[in-house]
Design a protein around this nucleic acid. Sequence first.
DNA 1: TTGACATTCAACCAAAAGGTTGAATATATT
DNA 2: AATATATTCAACCTTTTGGTTGAATGTCAA
Lengths: 112, 112
Amino acid sequence: MMAAPQTLDQTLLALADPTRRAILQRLSRGEARVTEVAQPFKMSLNAVSKHILVLERAKLVKRRKVGREHFLSYRAQPLDAAAKWMDDTRTFWGSRLDALEHLLREEDENTK
Amino acid sequence: MMAAPQTLDQTLLALADPTRRAILQRLSRGEARVTEVAQPFKMSLNAVSKHILVLERAKLVKRRKVGREHFLSYRAQPLDAAAKWMDDTRTFWGSRLDALEHLLREEDENTK
DNA sequence: TTGACATTCAACCAAAAGGTTGAATATATT
DNA sequence: AATATATTCAACCTTTTGGTTGAATGTCAA
């Protein structure tokens, strides 16, 4: 099943920010609380909190509340979907170009 | 070699817009002029021209000028790099989770 | 209960994004 | 030379984004 384009939008938009990608990297090493996630950044806790909200809306992050602490974890599904979209687009190209064209393109790509 | 994070930013930002993704889809079927690319959209030619500039800055589109006509073509490299970043992030997870955890996560993912 | 802690909410601000229209530039056509 | 075509540039507007600070909320700990 193909992801709704709106979802893809949200995913890519969420990923198009280095802070948010860094947050995901952090979470890819395991669950963490909001404060822990925010710690390495120079910006305010509030700013990070907002970034987390964006990631949450995009379903890239899931929140589990325990008392006053919110534990955040990485969710793979949207990234999988985005990767699939990319693969599809790229695969299309691969099958469209004939061998010579493809070779020339690589050539060009490498000497840039 | 790893892409500069700035480049990844540009790539993902460029992709995080349905109009621009549609433009790329169009170009994945072959070269086209600016006017041709703009034709299906409801927005003004100028708006599309701006989108193309964004794609060009992200090196997702290359421009070849012939007289007054500008021929646009799709470039695969940045998408490749973005896909690689995603794969890397995802692969990390894949190798980190043990089989049971992984299974439970999938389970959870599917019943949401 | 008083106070510290974890987190969000709300209001605000500057900068960027995405669109518009109108003018400019360069090339083709007659 | 005059006009039409292809495209960008420039100015403008509105909405969104990414950040700030200060207050509110809810929970733990003394």
